[in-house]
Amino acid sequence: MMFILLQTNPLEGWFIGSGKAYVVVGVACVIFIGMAWWLLRAENRLSKMEELLNSKKNAPSD
């Protein structure tokens, strides 16, 4: 580990200088946006289902 650390561009350090930081941020953002999107979609679908269930309850003839 130290070996890798010592070899790299001193000005920006190993993590950011080597461009790995951008990969990490990219992956994190993709996971993150995916999750938020999934949660929003789940909420929308749940709202629709709740509406449907409520209308069924109110219409006992079904």
Binding site: F15, I16, A28
Partner: peptide, 27 residues
């Protein structure tokens, strides 16, 4: 509040991984 949570976490991820580390002595 959901938007707030998402924005906060986006800020956290960006800063966490893009802010450089300060200098130090290794050996």
């Amino acid at each position: 509040w959901k938007a707030l949570g998402i924005l906060l976490l986006a800020y956290v991820f960006a800063i966490t991984f893009l802010v450089p580390l300060g200098p130090g002595l290794l050996e």
